[in-house]
Amino acid sequence: DTGRKLASATVTGVIGESVSEFTDPQGDDNGPGGYTYPTNGAFREEEGAFDLRTFTVFETDDSWRFAFEVESLYDAFGGEFSPHYFVVYLRDPETDTGRTTEIGDLNVTAEFAEPWQYRVRASGFGGGVVNASGTNLGSPETFVELDTNLAVLSVPKESVGGTDISDWEVLPVVGSESFGSFRDVQVGEPGEFV
């Protein structure tokens, strides 16, 4: 009644119903155990730039939204965010079709225990959705909240088969982006940009 402000807060909302949420321990952003950040100050190792904290799948009437919360989200190179790279693999456990390797366009070598059917990826400069054959199915829309360290990749349901994926398996990956793929990982001493 006096007009004096007592408190304020910022709330970030993601439209949609939460289908599933995963939490990830803090401080485990070293890959299989021995990866180090590039030495250039843009990569902010001390802030945990590539440290995934939560991953949530949301559903709206016409889209699936994949929310990546990292320890520190920022923009070092002039995109919506950078140098972060967010990728999620989707797998329908009811089918054996798909692939158990990477397509070869992300500068990554991977063997998957079970086949995946779709991959969604985004950096602060763009992204894409592909099926296991590598067919381009469009680009995700991104929603970014640097203040809350949250990046959301939204794809139309028809981009991933137009089906209910709420009981599918997901594999979220966070890494460093370099010109549309993952940044090089090299054996030896860390370099300024590897």
Rank of each mutant, 00 (worst) to 15 (best):
E177V: 10
E80H: 12
D75W: 02
E46F: 10
D167T: 15
P83M: 11
E192G: 01
V144P: 01
D164G: 08
P32Y: 09
G188I: 11
R91L: 08
E141T: 13
V187P: 00
V120I: 15
L171F: 09
G138H: 11
V120F: 06
T101A: 13
G161C: 06
I15G: 08
P156D: 14
Q186K: 06
A151W: 00
T135A: 03
T163E: 10
S176M: 15
L137K: 05
E177T: 08
T60A: 12
E189P: 05
E111G: 09
L171E: 02
G180K: 02
V170G: 02
V187R: 07
S181N: 11
G127T: 01
F43Y: 15
V57F: 09
E59Q: 15
G34Q: 05
L153W: 03
D75I: 06
E59N: 14
F68Q: 00
E192Y: 03
G161S: 04
F182D: 00
Q117T: 10
S181C: 07
G126A: 07
R44K: 14
A113E: 11
G124I: 05
F81W: 11
T54Y: 04
T10Y: 10
E145H: 07
Y35S: 01
S18I: 13
G175K: 02
A42C: 04
T100F: 05
Y74G: 13
S176F: 15
G162N: 00
G78H: 07
N149H: 13
E80A: 15
E59M: 06
V194S: 13
Y118I: 12
R4Y: 10
G127N: 01
Y74P: 09
V174H: 00
G27P: 12
G175S: 12
T148D: 15
S166T: 14
F143H: 02
F86M: 09
L52V: 02
E17P: 05
E114N: 03
G78I: 06
T163H: 02
K157V: 04
S63Q: 11
Y37I: 13
L73A: 13
D164Y: 08
R4N: 11
A49D: 06
E111I: 07
D1C: 09
A67S: 14
R53M: 06
G175M: 05
E94L: 12
F81G: 10
V144W: 01
N131G: 07
